[in-house]
Design a protein around this nucleic acid. Structure first.
Lengths: 300, 300
DNA sequence: GCTCCATGATACCTCCAGGGTATGGCTCGG
DNA sequence: CCGAGCCATACCCTGGAGGTATCATGGAGC
């Protein structure tokens, strides 16, 4: 499949008429007809219903059209962004992060760095393991995760340890308490994040298991917002890092846990033994302030 | 430009060696070399720095690589989704919405509809004006907006009127009051959303202007989260529809306004004179319950 | 400082696939 | 029943993608 097919498909999907579409594309109708068939063959699905009076999109065709528009749009913006960056003298600074650190001060680091006019920021949501590879390949320059991984080419710095909290529906029996894990184990759990494993979800399960507590998983969720919605709907409860409590939501209360030592670290990874670039130095300076604020409890 | 170029570029960007990349692509080195040059020519930017010992990505190349990976990934998932839909007997149901309605009950409608196993949901963020065209072309079947637009082929239903609220930084002099527009006009404004105009931003400005109030715009923001962050940083204040107050955030308080009649409607648009499909009937039923809850103040 | 070699660039050839033209066949409206 | 409108098929032609051979270059190693 080539972009040509997508471009043709879009025009045809809008015109619903091969002859007119061909005219719009400055080409004859038969080759267009063939290319569309070719596309359908490659995807292995009918995108159009043919009739003697023009075409109609099948449901699959509708879906494909919607996404194709987005793809073509993204290509255009990508080219434009690349050209802009090539003309400017900016350098790329890539930051990898696991989703759960993005509810805290990371957005502040991003906002500060975007101000600088010698740097183009590139953000990538990556698991801690993926971050190792991305660091080495130069795709990112700094990674934020929650796991310690031994790698000779990467140095890790423990920024701070973050307490875990329980997210409970409003009015829950434990809502005004400081519960123990044993107490929480009595209630069904919303496991989160379900998708890229291993993750916080496994850590959560491990915490219970190591204490010999049996938990029932009521539901899995991939995104924080979904998980919180499920908690608010009283489908279950879930454990989240403290940063998440900044995401307040009607129907949800966060409570600290009674068990000591239930924390999740936030770890910053960098390539080892590399002279810090000017941008890296700026990032480090900002980070230092943010970590200091975090440690002293001063939120901006 | 064709997908071929992107696929080649990705492999080269990973190998940073044309000979090896060519081998991986099961082709000879010279044509690959040429295609990459061709790509650079078309974009009008150097993506690689050549040396006798292999290649290196330029900043522009790095950016392009990052986005190219996403594009290729999206194409794969699009094809997979299209195939899946073609095999199933599901129908498409498209919903268009302006961002500001997505903080209310719309997610609930989406969640309920996703449960049904005869429907594949397609969401599209569109301005109210774009929704008209999308409805007529069949891209969406239902649109949610905040503006009344006369169109012979579209019928609009006013679901409810939503009060406007002011988002203020914590500790703001007006934070514990029910201020008037005149009082708010004393403080700088964060204009939101800045990008697709006309929008709520113009409505906000209009409200002040019609009362003969002069406002100073401190900053523009495209996304709600940014706007709220700016408010929390005491850069300015902003007006938001009531639904937004469900997005709570540290450092932000929402207050109702003293002026009467400061509301923003939520309007549902459908194609006129069309027999409702089974899915549309299900959507209408869910919508009715949600609107009733909204009107009676019962949030789920 | 010279040589070697890995690596990318250039030149030229081949051939296929994408586009063109001509035409058939189907369906719907009058 | 006929014609208009539309898509599909058949066949031809050419541009450009890919192949082979070879050159140019600069860093590593002696």
């Amino acid at each position: 499949m080539e972009l040509r097919h997508l471009r043709y498909f879009c025009v045809v999907a809008e015109e619903l008429n091969l002859t007119r579409a061909a005219a719009k594309l400055h080409m004859a109708q038969p080759p267009l007809s063939r290319q569309i068939k070719h596309l359908e063959g490659e995807i292995g699905a009918e995108l159009f219903e043919r009739s003697a009076r023009g075409l109609r999109l099948t449901p699959a065709g509708q879906l494909f059209h919607e996404h194709t528009l987005q793809i073509l749009e993204k290509i255009d913006t990508t080219i434009a962004a690349t050209q802009r960056l090539a003309r400017s003298k900016r350098r790329i600074f890539g930051i990898g992060f696991v989703p759960s650190v993005f509810y805290g001060q990371l957005p502040l680091l991003v906002r500060e760095l975007r101000q600088k006019d010698n740097v183009e920021l590139m953000l990538a949501e990556l698991t801690t393991v993926q971050q190792m590879k991305a660091l080495k390949s130069g795709r990112i320059d700094m990674g934020f995760g929650r796991m310690r991984i031994d790698d000779p080419d990467v140095e890790q710095e423990n920024l701070f340890d973050e307490p875990l909290m329980a997210a409970l529906p409003e009015g829950h029996p434990l809502a005004e308490t400081k519960p123990t894990l044993a107490q929480l184990a009595e209630y069904p759990l919303v496991l989160f994040p379900a998708q890229p494993r291993p993750s916080l979800a496994d850590m959560t399960l491990g915490l219970f298991r190591r204490r010999g507590l049996k938990v029932t998983v009521a539901q899995e969720a991939n995104e924080l917002q979904t998980a919180l919605a499920l908690v608010a709907s009283e489908i279950g409860i879930t454990l989240v890092p403290e940063q998440v409590k900044r995401v307040r939501r009607d129907g949800i209360v966060y409570v600290y846990l009674a068990d000591p030592g239930l924390t999740s670290p936030v770890i910053c990874s960098r390539r080892k033994g590399e002279a810090p670039s000017p941008i890296m130095r700026e990032a480090n300076a900002i980070l230092e302030v943010l970590v200091e604020n975090r440690r002293s409890g001063r939120y901006p």
